[in-house]
């Protein structure tokens, strides 16, 4: 939530929200009972804020763009292939990769909750978990894409993947024109989180 209004920001800082109070209450009780460790909580937050996030997925995509053999293996058995790069774990035990092409555009959603490939993309963004995205991505994916500024200009078919089981999906976006000859590191920098969910197309690089 933006806090561009000073008064609002002030009110927020002195008066915690009900939800905030409830987190504090539950956390306090569990710590007092010795059932959770406050340093472990900090470690969990730190991992998903700083260590596990879309940079991981971007590395996978950049490698797939650069190395056809890697890409073939990624499309064949993504779980084993990304594990070789050290990406495995909670909410990423069964990975499938989906390649966007000139004829197919893949889009990932979880209509039942918010399933998402944590080891590759981290914690899902707010919009991915929103009622609007969960309700509409399966019924009107093209309108949803348009709201993200994505217009499919080549007459692509849309394939929406509803993550109803423990399989987690990673979209391999189309490599943008203008990136020929780029190093894997340079390519990693331009792969965005949304492009690996399917709600962005990477722009032509200058």
């Amino acid at each position: 939530m933006p806090h561009d209004d000073l008064n609002q920001a002030h009110a927020h800082s002195v008066l915690p929200s009900d939800a905030e109070l409830r987190v504090n209450a539950l956390e306090t009780l569990l710590i007092r009972k010795g059932l959770i460790d406050s340093e472990a909580l900090d470690a969990i937050i730190d991992i998903y804020e700083n260590k596990i996030g879309p940079k991981n997925g971007a590395r996978v995509v950049a490698k797939a763009w650069s190395d056809p053999v890697f890409k073939a293996r990624l499309l064949e058995d993504a779980t084993a292939t990304v594990a070789e790069l050290g990406f495995y774990g909670r909410q990423g035990e069964h990975i499938v990769s989906l390649e966007n092409t000139d004829s197919i555009h893949n889009l990932v959603v979880c209509t039942l909750c918010s399933c998402y490939p944590w080891p590759l993309l981290g914690i899902p963004p707010g919009w991915y978990k929103s009622d609007a995205y969960r309700a509409r991505a399966v019924r009107e994916p093209r309108k949803v894409l348009a709201e993200f500024g994505v217009v499919l200009e080549n007459g692509e078919d849309v394939r929406v993947w509803d993550s109803t089981a423990e399989i987690r999906y990673l979209v391999i976006p189309k490599r943008p024109p203008g990136t020929e000859g780029w190093s894997e590191d340079a390519l990693t920098e331009i792969v965005t989180r949304d492009s690996m969910i399917g709600t962005a197309i990477l722009p032509v690089s200058e």
Partner: peptide, 24 residues
Amino acid sequence: GPVDSDFGREHVFEEEWHGRAFAV
């Protein structure tokens, strides 16, 4: 209604307590 993209203002946890709720 429309999907509210966070483009340009991406946060792992939008509020501090989101992270706490997640970690707990």
